[in-house]
Design a protein around this nucleic acid. Sequence first.
DNA 1: CGCGACGTTGATTTGCCTCAACGATTGTGG
DNA 2: CCACAATCGTTGAGGCAAATCAACGTCGCG
Lengths: 191, 191
Amino acid sequence: MKDLLLAHINRHISLTNVEEEEFKGIIAEKKVFRKSFLIESGVMVNELYYVVEGCLKAYYVDDLGNKHILQFAIEDWWITDFNALHNNIPAELYIEAIENCTVLAISTVALEELYIRIPKFERFFRILYTNAFIALRKRVMSSLHRTNSIRYLEFFERYPNIERRVTNYHIANYLGITAESLCRIRRDLGM
Amino acid sequence: MKDLLLAHINRHISLTNVEEEEFKGIIAEKKVFRKSFLIESGVMVNELYYVVEGCLKAYYVDDLGNKHILQFAIEDWWITDFNALHNNIPAELYIEAIENCTVLAISTVALEELYIRIPKFERFFRILYTNAFIALRKRVMSSLHRTNSIRYLEFFERYPNIERRVTNYHIANYLGITAESLCRIRRDLGM
DNA sequence: CGCGACGTTGATTTGCCTCAACGATTGTGG
DNA sequence: CCACAATCGTTGAGGCAAATCAACGTCGCG
């Protein structure tokens, strides 16, 4: 269970057995059932989540009550309300399970202490956030300057394993277009 | 000159005089004149740039030859082709000076060595990339789910000091809309 | 001076949203 | 296990916001 996460981490840094054990001490397994929430708007956030199994979505609700999906997460992905977590402000996002999930929760307070004892973790998260930043820049390029049809195809390249696990409505929402438009795009693409 | 950068870094970590001197050793001052390039598409990238003075833009050119501005940078901002830098692939972006600039160049090879000697820098860049990631998520939310008029106003909140330094054409391009549309938005807002 | 970059306005087109309807599928409670 | 409700995918009609295309005045610069 926690080994999946350790393998993920060891792709970027090398941990000794002692360090692995110490890290295991600050992570806790959580089950989240379909339609229930890991984070709800307004709460304080102090954990980062790594998905071991299942599928979740992060969305916010605007002034008009419309939901907007910002991120999906499946196995081997990270999710939380990063803005709330790092700036110690109440969550703006809802993080809801689309399937029954198993996640590993990491308390940032414990993580901060760990950074001091084992700076290698600082390195790991530097690399992780750098990669996340780069991936988001690609998404900005895609969302601003490409047709919706191409953006739909790019979605599948980026999330090849999500297609059958979320509805088209979800994908349309993530792309910022209506479900009807997405349906017509799919028709025109012969899908 | 380099003190501006050290002050920037010391907002997140505390460096001793010795560490500051060591860091100064891996940064080099560069002048970039208006309309000249810090990075051009196709070249290999091995430096990160901190802007001491001036204004630059990062853009890419699509298959149809259209430019798309991804980022501006002014004093106290960082800029480079992060994807090319971190994945050791040729640059996709052009980084061009809009004004005559002074930047500080940090070689990532030297930086990697510094991370090992002084892990505090790993911490600094972890925090820097985390903040950049969070800021980009806000931009994604803005670009996908808000009207162009609101996005234009949000641009000024985010870049309050850029308004008089770049043309409306640049801003429109950054927002992914046409200059004509932006002009009409400005008219309707009474600007 | 003359050229090019920039900002602005108008006319037309177009892609997407909105609203509405309906069949298929899934889920749920009696 | 069936009946009914909710969700999902799909299609059509109509409208709107922004793109496109075109034109023109202003400004700064070589």
